[in-house]
Write a protein that binds this DNA or RNA. Structure first.
Lengths: 265, 265
DNA sequence: CTACGTCTCGTACGACGTACGATAACAGGA
DNA sequence: TCCTGTTATCGTACGTCGTACGAGACGTAG
C-alpha cells in the first residue's frame, strides 16, 4: 500500500535528517541505498503504530519503540528527525487505510463512503486523534484521498473554490465526529475503570446523586429530560446512527445549494 | 463568571483529592472554608490558562505553574488531583467564555451565534484543541451551553432524540472546524519559522519543487489546479467564510429535514 | 590496506509527573 | 495560655521522557 516512489512528495521545509548532511548531489538515490542494515523508516512507523494501537498514544516513546525493535533508542534518530515527525508519519501512514473509491457518478454515495471509511480508520486508531492537533497530515496518502474526494465532486459542476469548501465541510464534520466519538469511548472506559474499584452501591449512589443535582438546580431542564428518557446508552449502534444523521444533514445542505445554484444561474 | 455554588455538579466518580480523605461528614462545607491561605483551585486554573495562552499547551507543567505562583510544585496537588484533571478544569473554564444567548425565537440565528462564539473561543485558546481528545468537557459551564443550545431548538418541535442529534451535528461541525483551523494556523507558523532560517531563494526553490512534484506525478490534477488558482491564501477572512459556508450547509440540511418532517407528519 | 560515507548506540543532561513524609499554619477547646 | 487535630505547603527522590554528543562498527571504493 501507499506510493513508495514519491514518499516525500509533500512536506516541504521539513526538518533535516542526518543523512541530508551529505552534499546534495543525490548520487545513489535509488531505493535500497539506505536500510542495508535492519532498521528502516517504514519499520519504525509500523512498530510505532502497533504499539499505539495496543496501548494508546502515551505508550509511544522513542525508548519503547527502540526496545520493541531490539535496537538502541538513539538509532531511531538516523531515520526520523524527532518524535513529532514520527507522529506526522504515523498519521500519514494511517491515511493509507482510508478507502476512497474512484468516482462512481453518485456523488452522495462517494462522499458517504469517504466519510465512513475515514471514521472507521480513526475509530480503529484512536491515538490518531491525539496527534491531529499538531498539524494537518500532508503526504501522498492524504493527497490521494483529497484528490479522490475532489474528483467525486466534479459532477456537481461547481467552481473550484466552492468545490474546495464543500470537500472541507464534509471532512470537517467527519473529523469532528470522530473526535467526539473517541472522547465518548474514552470517558466511558474511564468511568468503567473507576466503577470497577468501588462497591456497586456506591457507584449507583454517585450516579443518582449526579442526576439529582442536575435536576435540583433547575437550570438544565433539557438535559434532565434527556437523562429521564434514558437516551444515549453509548452503544456503537447509536453512535453510527448519529454519525449518519449529521452526515446526511450536511449532504442535504450541499445538495440544496447545488440545486439553487443551477436554477439561479 | 461561572456558577460557583455548583462547581462540582458534574463529573461523577472523579479521582479523590487529599481533603476528601476526611470522614465524609462535610462539616465546614460553606465557601471560604478552604483557601484561607493564598492558593486556590481557581487561581491555579487561571494561571495555567494564562501560561497556555501565552506559550501553548506544552508550557503547562506543574513545576512551571507552581513557579509562576511562587509556590512549591507539590502544593498544587492539594487542590488538583493530577495534571489531567487540571486539563479538564482548564477546558471547563474556557467554556464560560462561550456566549450562547437565551433563545430568541430565531433558531438559525441562535445556532449561528453559538457556533461563532465557540469557534472564537477555541481560536483564542488553541491549546484547548490539544486537551479535547482526553474526554468531553463536562461541568456547569459546558452544561449551560448545551442547555441553551437545546432550548434554541425547542421551536422546531422535534422529538427529543432528534433534537439531540441536531445539536450534536452542529457541535460536531464546529469542533471539527476549529480543529482544522488551529492545525492550519500552526503549520503556517511552523513553515514561517522554518523559512526564516533559510535564504529566501531556497524557500522559493523548495516551494517550486513542491508544486512541480505534485504536477509531474500526474496523480493529483485537482490539487494541482487548486495550487494554480492561487486559492486559499490562509487569510483569517477566507477561513471565516469557509466556516460559514459549511455551517450554512449544515443548517440548510437541518431546515430541510424539519420541513420534510412537518409536511410528512 | 586505507579512507570514507552510512549507520548504530552508550552515556549524559535537563525536564517532566508525582509518591512520600516532614513541617508549618491555623482553629477550637481546655 | 497551651494542647491537639485539621488544613495546607513543600523538599526530596524515583522513574521516565526527548534528545545532544561523540565514539565506534560496518560496508564499499580506491
Amino acid at each position: 500500500m501507499g506510493a513508495d516512489d514519491d514518499e516525500d512528495v509533500f512536506v516541504p521545509l521539513r526538518p533535516l535528517l542526518p543523512h541530508d548532511a551529505g552534499r546534495g548531489d543525490r548520487r545513489g538515490d535509488r531505493p535500497g541505498s539506505r536500510r542495508v542494515r535492519g532498521l528502516s523508516r517504514a519499520d519504525i512507523i509500523d512498530v510505532a503504530i502497533a504499539v499505539a494501537d495496543a496501548e494508546g498514544a502515551d505508550a509511544v516513546s522513542m525508548r519503547r519503540i527502540a526496545h520493541e525493535m531490539h535496537v538502541g533508542a538513539m538509532s531511531l534518530y538516523w531515520h526520523i528527525a524527532s518524535k513529532e515527525e514520527l507522529h506526522r508519519l504515523m498519521l500519514e501512514w494511517v491515511q493509507a487505510e482510508v478507502e476512497v473509491p474512484e468516482p462512481t457518478g453518485d456523488w452522495r454515495g462517494d462522499l458517504r463512503s469517504y466519510a465512513h471509511s475515514t471514521r472507521a480508520v480513526l475509530l480503529r486508531h484512536p491515538w490518531a486523534i491525539d496527534f491531529l492537533g499538531s498539524g494537518p497530515p500532508s503526504g501522498p496518502n492524504d493527497a490521494r484521498n483529497a484528490e479522490r474526494l475532489l474528483a467525486a465532486l466534479d459532477e456537481l459542476g461547481l467552481d473550484l473554490a466552492t468545490t474546495m469548501m464543500v470537500a472541507m465541510s464534509v471532512g470537517t464534520y467527519v473529523i469532528g465526529a470522530a473526535l467526539r466519538e473517541v472522547q465518548e469511548i474514552r470517558s466511558q472506559h474511564a468511568a468503567e475503570a473507576a466503577a470497577a474499584n468501588l462497591p456497586p452501591e456506591e457507584v449507583a449512589a454517585a450516579l443518582a446523586e449526579f442526576g439529582r443535582r442536575i435536576r435540583r438546580s433547575g437550570r438544565y431542564p433539557h438535559i434532565a429530560a434527556a437523562l429521564d428518557a434514558g437516551l444515549d446508552p453509548d452503544s456503537p449502534d447509536t453512535r453510527t446512527r448519529r454519525f449518519d444523521f449529521g452526515l446526511d444533514r450536511m449532504l442535504d445542505g450541499i445538495e440544496a445549494r447545488v440545486k439553487a445554484d443551477r436554477s439561479g444561474a
